[in-house]
Each structure stands twice: as C-alpha cells, then as structure tokens.
Design a protein around this nucleic acid. Sequence first.
DNA 1: AACAATTCTTTACAAATGATAAGAAATTGA
DNA 2: TCAATTTCTTATCATTTGTAAAGAATTGTT
Lengths: 187, 187
Amino acid sequence: MNSIFLYFKKFHEISTDSQNAISLISTTISVKKNTILQPIGHACKTIYFIKKGLARIYYFKDDLEITESFAFENSIIARAESLFSKNPSRKAIQVLENTELIAIDAIALFKLYDSYPEIERLFRLIFENAYIDTINRIENIQFHTADERYTFLITESSDIIKRVSLKLIASYLGITPVSLSRIRAKN
Amino acid sequence: MNSIFLYFKKFHEISTDSQNAISLISTTISVKKNTILQPIGHACKTIYFIKKGLARIYYFKDDLEITESFAFENSIIARAESLFSKNPSRKAIQVLENTELIAIDAIALFKLYDSYPEIERLFRLIFENAYIDTINRIENIQFHTADERYTFLITESSDIIKRVSLKLIASYLGITPVSLSRIRAKN
DNA sequence: AACAATTCTTTACAAATGATAAGAAATTGA
DNA sequence: TCAATTTCTTATCATTTGTAAAGAATTGTT
C-alpha cells in the first residue's frame, strides 16, 4: 500500500489520518493478463492505482476496438468521464500483463471529501493533472501525422513497443495496423 | 455579475459569502471583435466567463493556426493546461465577436480555496465537467472521419456556422479549409 | 515438438485528404 | 461606393491512409 502514498505525495501531502481513511476503502488485487477489470456499460465506481503491470482503456467503434489510453506502473487509471458524470461508461478497462493494483472505492472516496478536505484537494490535483495530459493528447492528435505521433510515442515511453502489441498501439494512434507497419518500415 | 452565479449554481450551490469573495476578485470587461485576451507565452492567470459573445483558444503548428476550442455565451474559457501546471501557455485566447466577459483572477481564486472549501469544490466540479468534454472530444477526433466530425459539430451547435468562419471551423476539425469545402459540397 | 491461432508485414488497389493555384463571393476599410 | 483584402469554392495532382488478401513470424496450447 506504500507505493500509492508515495505517488500521492507528488501531488499533495496528506495526514496519516487521511491515509488511513483511504486505506479503509482500498483493496490490493492481482489479476491475470487480459482480464477485463471493468466492463462496458456500467458506471465507473473504482479508481485503480497500478503497482505493477499495465492496463488500457478501450471502446468499440462499430466492431473495431479503439484504445483510448495506456497506464503503466505508478499511475492511476479510471474512466473519468463516467466517474464524474455518473453515467454508464462506453469504455472498458483491461489489464495487458499480470498486474497488481490497488482498487479505490470511488463512491466511498467522494464521501470522504466532506470530512477530509485534504483528500478532496489531493484528488482534485491528481485529476487536474490527468486533465492536462488529455489536453496535450488532443494537441498531439489534432495536427500531427501518424508518423509524427508514432515517433513521439516511442520517444515518450520507449518500452511500450516491447510490452504492447502493435495492433493496440495502432488503435491508440488512430490508424490501422497495416498503416503502422508501413510507417515502421519507412523509419 | 448575476449570470455567472446562475451558471455556478448548475455545478454547486455556494453561500452569499463565497459569492462576494468571488465578486471581489472578478471584473466585467467588454472587448472588441478579434481582440487577443491572452497572448501566447505567458502563464494563464485568468479564468473568463462569457456573458455575451464568443471566444476561442488557438495555437500555432508551424505557421498554421489551429483552433483548440470555441466557447459561447454562459460558459467558461481558460487555458486549463497552463492554469494547473503554472507553465507558460503555447496557446492564446481570442474573442471572435464583440464580447462581454467576467475575468476572474485565478491566483486569487486558488487562494480562496483555503478559506472557502465550497469554492474549491465548485471549481473542482466545473473543471471535472470540462475534463469530460475533453475526453469526449478525443473520442470524437480519434475514429471519426472529417465528414462525421463536421456533421456532429453542426448538430451540436447549429449556429456556429453563422458565427464562425469556415477557416476556423476547419482548423478546429483538424482539416484544411479546402477539405471542409469538399465535405460541404457533398452534403 | 507440433499444431493452431494470432500478430505482423507486404502488396495492390481504392478512397480520403493535402498542396497548390485560380477564380468567385463576401467582407472590410478608406 | 469602390477598391482591396479576405474568405470560400473548385479543380488538378500528389501523398497518405484504408481495405482486402496472402504469407511470414510469433505466440500459445496440447
């Protein structure tokens, strides 16, 4: 459980009291490669912290799988649009390796906000940061070629190639696997 | 000043006390069409509420202008990625009509968070909502054709065509004006 | 080890989009 | 109002990406 509080510290210091409150609504779980943590169609009620392993959020466009995002060790993954809107999510969370996670009960967490303002602040700062990432991703998609986006991805997280299939990377870049193969062949 | 508190009410009810505190750090301004409210290269220190008129956030890719977002009456516009990271923004805010705004001093606002938890909560909820919009926009860009994105845009906000030049709409859709003309000719 | 299934690459062709240029339409400013 | 500027459309050609199919490479399973 320690790793998550180290992660939290980067955003906002919280008291041992607050840490205990969060611990009480959190559980550590281990899941096997390819497990669907959260299926499509239900409101998101869990925030995951990845201790070890790797996960993605994906959805379907017609019968094509599209990867919205990847999340690696020491990061948080949640379907924020459903978490905040309370609407059922069209997206699923899947683990791509044998993965160890801490699952935080989001409903219980939001209740903690009333009695622990520093917890509210902590998660405000965490999600503000996630918001920044999402804004930057739009900039990245909007006026960069697939080639540029691929090059950017492998410089940003160079080991993604080793850990994620090119099929999933293509769907993340918004292109077909065939198109990604062509790009890779050129470079 | 009333319109902004009506807007706030949709997210979170706050006391008259909190409203007054916000009023004290806000000013109403009127600016002429095409005015640059916030230039590129400075950290974002102002959150705007649009009472009347229309604005956009844009940036440059090489010497090409790209519109990241539009904001209409009764909505908030701010360069969130700079607001939260405190880094200088590569983006500018420009008004596209003669526009009336309420400018909120963001530095002062963030200070209010300590003494008025309900103000912190209010803006948390406002930006959570903006975050949802941004996530949905990625989904919209990532696997929809330019044609689909255009059709979606005009059904979502039908008067945008009357108020914004096609050149800017094209840059928002991530295509060239020439390509947008072709799409419009087909439909 | 051997087979099956999946992933990745390559090829050929089709469709969409970009770049450039030219002209029409609309807007702006003196 | 008239000229100048900007915006919008159309056309042509080049480039990129998609689709479909086939085979190679890899992975998983028994």
